[in-house]
Structures are given as C-alpha cells and as structure tokens.
Design a protein around this nucleic acid. Structure first.
Lengths: 138, 138
DNA sequence: TTCCATTTGCAAATAGATTGCAATTGATTC
DNA sequence: GAATCAATTGCAATCTATTTGCAAATGGAA
C-alpha cells in the first residue's frame, strides 16, 4: 500500500506509525489554520480519546512537525510546521478567540537583537495581531 | 487621606474603589512584567481569594487598564497598559514558560494592511519572540 | 446612618491538560 | 506467519486554570 505524506513524515522522523497518529496528522495537514486539542477531538467525533490527541500533539510538537502559536485564549494552539508553512503572523480575535493565519506578502524588518547583552536565545520571531475578526464584526 | 496612583486610575475610569482592587492594582503597577492570576495570588500569600483576583483582572482588562499578552503557556497573562507602557515585544521561554518584556529601542516597520479585503479590525500589532531565556540556558 | 447595588469569599462546577496503568498494537526477529 | 517486547492507546483519575452561584460584607450616595 502506498504511503501518504503523513506516513512518510513520521518515517522520516523515526516516529512509530499508528492508526491514531496518522489520522491526527492527516487531519492537521489537510487544514491551513491553527487548532487546539479540542478542535481535533470535535472533528474526529469521538473516534479517538482526547488524551491520545494531547499526547500526539506533544510528540509532534517536540519533533518539530508542529509549532505552538502565541495567543491570548489560555489554550494551547498548534499549526503544521514546514518549509512550505514557515513562521508567519496570526490574528487573534478578542471576541470569538479564534486564530487566523495572516499571509503578509509585504516584507517587514525587525530588529536583529533585542536587549543586547541579555543572552536570550531567540528561536522564533513573529509578528502577531489582535482585534476583531470579520464574522465578529457584523 | 492622599489618593495614590491606583486609586486615581480607578476614579478616572469610574470603577468602584475597594481594598482588594487597590491591592491588586498597586501590585500590578509596582511590577514591570506580565503576570497571570496565580502569580498575583502567590505574591499576596492568600490575603485575597483567587476568584476575586480573576474577577478584577477581567474587569481591569475590560476597562483597558490591563492588556492581555500573547504566549504559548495555555494561561492568561496580563500587563499594565498605559501611555508609559505601550504595546511592545515579549519573549516567551519555551522551557520555563516565563514571559519577559523586551525593550526594542530600534524601531521596526510592519505592513499596514494584512490580507487586504478581509475586513479584520486590527487593534494591536506586536512583535513576539520565543526561545530560551538566560536562566534556562545555563 | 440608612439603603442598595456592587463586590467579596467560599463552595462547587466547568474547562484544559496530565498521569498511572492494564490492555492492545506495531515492528522486529525468527 | 507466529512469538516477542517496547511503545502506544483508552479509560479512570488527577491536577491546574477559570468560571459560576449565592449569601454575607462593603462602598458610596442620599
């Protein structure tokens, strides 16, 4: 049987392939927007234990297949991380708490160093927005 | 009796002044770093109910005295919001989950519009960092 | 001082996330 | 393919973060 993209990704990272893992990763890769554990649970309609989802998110994030997204909701959000989906801005809606990916086609310039001398190791620099999303606006 | 800065701020906004509210706001204004409900609770050593802290944070945030800070911890973080403390970058440590304020003295330029035509109302634009903080580095 | 709406503290409920453990499964070796 | 074993899963339980209900206490106006 042909291996799909998810399975190849798991193989590549040396992660054991299970039905649940594939299901989760397939779902993630089919969407282009950040999600939390519960979003996946809802979409899987109880086909998988929520705990399994949490554990796999943690694993995939640790392996660099996912990245965490900054937000103000008090929940942990993730998105698929790849060369095709590099770090990019998000928009957090203060009303519905949804998170949207922003494709800023314009380049922006940021300071290369902050608090020089403070020894922070910066792994990610990202521009983030918050405000009101189109649906909450109406 | 003289009114302190916290009390004046509450008066200004037409918020009822209570002992708890003053205590919380005094504490907040004495620090220059984001905090969550539990941080305040710890610092007040049980002098105030955690629920009261949550309720006052929500109130102060709604009144614009505080602003929420983006992070990846799954907790809600706030900071004092004023002209003297405008929106600015933060650094989120992926190891200890602490949040640091970054004073970027350099200016940075960001795109004025994202996803043009999408009708997002942008209320806040902020550069955020994540990585490893100085203490976790060692 | 009285009065009343607001706020507080406590108990309980609701979310979000993690842990322990027995049963199951995936991959390796024969 | 069957035996083997470590890794994974589901379920129950726990923990942490946040919210809600309600009676008692309090701030501020009259």
């Amino acid at each position: 049987m042909d291996k799909n993209r998810s399975e190849l990704l798991l193989n590549e990272k040396g992660i054991k392939v299970t039905k649940q893992r594939l299901t989760v990763l397939d779902l993630i890769m089919s969407k282009d927007m950040p999600f939390c554990a519960n979003d996946l649970f809802d979409q899987l309609k109880g086909k998988m234990d929520l705990v399994t989802i949490y554990r796999n998110l943690q694993l995939l994030c640790g392996e660099g297949i996912l990245r965490e997204v900054m937000n103000k909701s008090g929940r942990q959000y993730f998105e698929f991380s790849s060369e095709n989906n590099p770090v990019h801005p998000h928009f957090y809606c203060s009303l519905c708490r949804k998170i949207f990916c922003m494709k800023s086609k314009n380049n922006y310039s940021v300071p290369k160093k902050v608090n020089p001398g403070d020894n922070f190791i910066i792994l990610e620099t990202v521009l983030q927005y918050s405000g009101i999303c189109p649906s909450c606006r109406t």
